[in-house]
Design a protein around this nucleic acid. Structure first.
Length: 567
RNA sequence: GGGCGUGUGGCCUAGUCAGGAUAUGGCACUUGCCUCCUAAGCAAGUGGUCGUGGGUUCGAAUCCCACCACGCCCGCCA
């Protein structure tokens, strides 16, 4: 079973070129094979060799093209390039067959020997998820899904910060302030009110600030009573967060609590080890490690890992957390906002000093802002994930009702739910993570063009054709039409896309791929008829529709988006 | 001031890591297409000094240098 239909063609092209170059230009002659190329499946630019050999690039390319006697590839010389195509007819048939025999495993090419932990979301349990934080969850979840489909051994993990100042403030608020009168039941949305009021009060009331600081100190020392009450309230908020995450198809395999690292002594252990480092310095009772800035103070950053009172800081605990994660995995990936970059420099430096050679990989993303500017909890200028999802489903339902009068209200709601969520997820994940995004409703809930509904619609179309086809079975398949061959080529590319996403962690490429696949299927659909095709051709086309359906579904699943049978 | 990141048609964007051919899609706009497997679609068209200026190269959106604009960070916060 050939899981990557393109593989043997690439290998044949490489083999042929290397053999020819060795015999014609000497054993050290090398040309690079571009995959993919602009005008062909692969291409060899012949410019470098031209200088050494005294021939023109075009002459070299001509010679290589003319000498090919095999049958799997088509070669031609153009503008100094040797252009190479996999034979489209055999590639098409092989691809469709490979997909239909691989099923859900199509694209799975990795061996999965090493264990990977992807940490993502990790939102402080002091309030609900807004769209900026949701970007972390969606990028992280998409990455995990792509890893998994590629065949990697991956586990997702949420780091619950129940030992920091934010939760402490929340807990203080719950213990000292009046219950909110908002009438909201969902715990994350209800409890955040305590946090907002407590943090406001701490800013102007010294007694309140002192109490919070004392609570923080006892928490850091693992005072069982404080830890218990903090954990209880954090878990309450976390329930609300989990509900929101579950609504957008995000599930984490494991939740790790920061307070556990204090209770089991791992934080204290890290502090001990850091203090013993030759680099460590003391500053009035507080300990730090100088980072960067060669000699003297110029450009030096200080990684403080204890306060004057001996308590730990966030990054100190994060070091302990990463050492713990490394004891459970071969490779770590952290999905983080770009504001974390400095802290991560400290983390990496500390890990390098303590655990030689083991550092996590980081996937940083930029912030989501509103057209009016930054999101601010205090100013009430933020867009909650729950609200976007609800609005998305509402808008999607309007669209469904515009088009479908033949279905029940329950069916329309079900379709709207899948489409609304899809639109949301797709629009967050379709962009490079480093790009900053301005949240606009019209863009976030786009239902046409470069959007999830476009891809979902193609899937529903494929399902509809297959449903109407009645019983059929494809033996051997064959394709001749341009639209068929182009579609098959895109299907053949899927394993390499999955490989690329796994390597680069550029999850937006999966969104781009799914859109291109849907687009080619739509072209095929308009140009070529399936159900009314002549017998023989008909079953081949049904097999192609089925293979496309399959890959669309896998792509959407990588994006955490459901593939509806009907829209 | 220092560090990191981003800059591609009116708007959003791919391509940048591993330099290569006529720069990818989408939105908007113009024009066709539902007696035909779902028009959330298809076909065609208008629109681009790839932030600016240098450099390297046979060849630069891509690499190097400088500058400009925007974002993030520069706490014994998280």
């Amino acid at each position: 079973m050939n899981m990557d239909p393109m593989e043997r063609y690439v290998a044949e092209a490489r083999e042929y070129i290397n053999a020819r170059l060795a015999s014609d230009y000497g054993k050290d002659a090398r040309l690079e094979l571009e995959i993919p190329a602009a005008r062909a499946d692969f291409a060899c630019p012949c410019f470098i060799l031209a200088r050494k050999s005294g021939k023109t690039p075009q002459q070299i390319a001509d010679g290589l093209a003319a000498g090919y006697a095999g049958s799997g590839l088509k070669m031609w010389a153009e503008n100094g390039y040797l252009n190479i195509n996999a034979d489209p007819v055999s590639l098409a048939a092989e691809t469709v067959t490979a997909i239909r025999t691989s099923g859900d495993d199509y694209g799975k090419t990795a061996e999965g020997r090493e264990k990977i932990i992807v940490e993502h979301t990790s939102i402080n349990p002091n309030g609900p998820i807004h769209i900026g934080r949701a970007r972390n969850a969606l990028i992280g979840d998409t990455l995990v899904r792509c890893f998994r489909h590629a065949g990697l051994n991956v586990e997702s993990e949420y780091y619950v910060d129940d030992a920091g100042k934010q939760v402490t403030m929340l807990v203080w608020g719950v213990q000292h302030l009046e219950a909110p009168t908002t009438g909201i039941i969902k715990p994350d949305r209800k409890l955040v009110d305590y946090y907002i009021r407590a943090s406001e009060l701490a800013g102007k009331d010294e007694k309140c600030a002192a109490e919070i600081q004392e609570m923080q100190r006892r928490l850091d020392q693992g005072d069982p009573e404080i830890v218990r009450s903090v954990r209880m309230i954090a878990d309450d908020v976390l329930e609300g967060i989990k509900e929101s995450l579950s609504n957008i198809n995000v599930r984490l395999d494991r939740y790790s609590y920061e307070s556990d690292l204090i209770l089991n002594g791992k934080v204290a252990g890290v502090i001990d080890k850091l203090k013993k480092l030759p680099e460590a310095k003391e500053d009035g009772g507080a300990w730090y490690i100088p980072i960067g800035g060669k000699d003297g103070e110029d450009g030096e950053d200080r990684f403080y890992f204890t306060r004057t009172d001996g308590t730990s800081l966030y990054t100190t605990r994060d070091v302990a957390y990463h050492i713990d994660k490394f004891s459970r995995a071969d490779r770590l990936v952290d999905v983080l906002g770009e504001d974390q970059k400095l802290g991560i420099r400290f983390l990496s430096a500390a890990l390098k000093l303590l655990e030689t050679g083991r550092e996590p990989d980081f996937l940083f993303y930029s912030f989501v802002t509103l057209p009016a500017g930054k999101m601010s909890t205090r100013a009430g200028s933020f867009v909650l994930l729950d609200d976007i999802l609800e609005e998305g489903k509402r808008r999607a339902k309007e669209e469904v009702l515009k088009r479908r009068s033949d279905i029940s209200d329950a069916e329309a709601t079900a379709i709207a739910s899948v489409v609304g969520l899809g639109a949301l997820r797709y629009n967050i994940v379709r962009l490079q993570a480093e790009k900053k995004v301005v949240f606009r409703w019209e863009e976030a809930l786009n239902f046409e063009g470069n959007s999830a509904p476009f891809v979902q619609y193609a899937h529903a179309r494929a399902c509809s054709i297959l449903e109407k086809a009645g019983p059929w079975s494809a033996g051997s398949v064959a394709y001749r039409e341009e639209a068929e061959l182009a579609l098959c080529k895109q299907l053949a590319l899927f394993p390499s896309i999955l490989r690329d996403v796994s390597r680069s962690m550029a999850v937006h490429r999966m969104a781009v791929y799914s859109h291109e696949l849907a687009s080619l299927f739509n072209q095929f659909y308009r140009l070529v008829s399936v159900l009314k095709a002549a017998e023989g051709v008909r079953t081949s086309r049904l097999a192609l529709v089925d293979a496309t359906r399959q890959v669309l579904r896998i792509s959407l699943d990588c994006l955490g988006i459901e593939a509806p049978r009907s829209m």
